[in-house]
Amino acid sequence: MRFAVVGGTGLIGSKVVKKLNEAGHEAVPHSKSTGVDVITGEGLDQAAAGADAVVNLTNSPTFDDASSAFFQQSMDNLLEAGRKAGVRHVVVLSIVGVDQVPELDYYRAKTLQEEVLAAGPLPYSVVRATQFMEFVDSIMSWTADAGTVRLPTTPLQPIAAQDVADAVAAVAAGEPLQGIHNIAGPEVFPLDELGRITLAARSDSRTVTTDDTAGMFAAVRGDVLTGRADASLAPTRYADWLAAH
């Protein structure tokens, strides 16, 4: 099969391209650096031409209310390019529980992206993943100072980027789901505890203070960001990931 991987030079995209090519497919990465702009539409027709499937791994440059406009425009342009090219499958990467946190601008925007895809003219699949292990440091940085990291007790079920890429590649190579496939890491942690584990593994002397008002994830209610009952559990444990990174 031939795949156009839009956003194919990023953290997940580059791994998806490699995984698909190793499996004997032809996966071509596309991004602004290769002349493809999902907002203006530049290069999209050429990227989609001849592709059996398009994998959309692009992301909004902001996490605020402007992200909705990004996902609306980018999906409209991508679906139109795919329709003209006769693409048979469009895959989008989203977030487990994304439609359960309307308080967050970015999560509302990702929900909109899913809705535009589902209402569009092409067969589709949505892969929803829990938070990436690679993003834990960034999450901590939002509420950190020189000596303290403030984190809420929000339960997270982190997943390694490579496991996400493997799942996206597998779904992309299969038949369209016309629905959602949930994937999650194998372990659930309160976010504050995840912070303590991370700092200890890196011999970081900062302390974690539990603060259920701190950071973006303070708005999350309950365990909506952990794997659902139907989620496929990835193999990589957080301690093993930390040891390797």
Rank of each mutant, 00 (worst) to 15 (best):
L78K: 04
L79I: 02
L79G: 01
A81Y: 04
G82T: 05
V87T: 09
V87K: 01
V90W: 11
V92M: 10
I95H: 07
V96L: 13
G97W: 10
Q100A: 15
V101R: 12
V101E: 14
P102L: 14
E103Q: 15
Y107W: 14
R108E: 03
R108N: 08
A109L: 09
K110A: 04
L112H: 00
L112C: 08
V116T: 14
L117P: 01
A118V: 07
A119Y: 04
G120D: 00
L122N: 07
Y124P: 00
S125I: 11
V127A: 09
R128I: 02
A129G: 13
F135N: 14
F135G: 09
D137C: 04
D137L: 09
I139D: 14
S141E: 03
T143P: 07
A144K: 11
D145R: 03
A146H: 07
G147V: 03
T148S: 09
T154S: 08
T154E: 08
L156N: 12
Q162K: 08
A165Q: 06
A169C: 06
V171Y: 11
A172Q: 10
A173N: 05
A173K: 11
A173E: 05
I180N: 11
H181V: 13
I183S: 13
I183G: 15
V188W: 02
P190D: 08
D192L: 06
D192T: 04
G195V: 04
L199G: 02
A200P: 00
T207D: 12
V208W: 02
T209W: 02
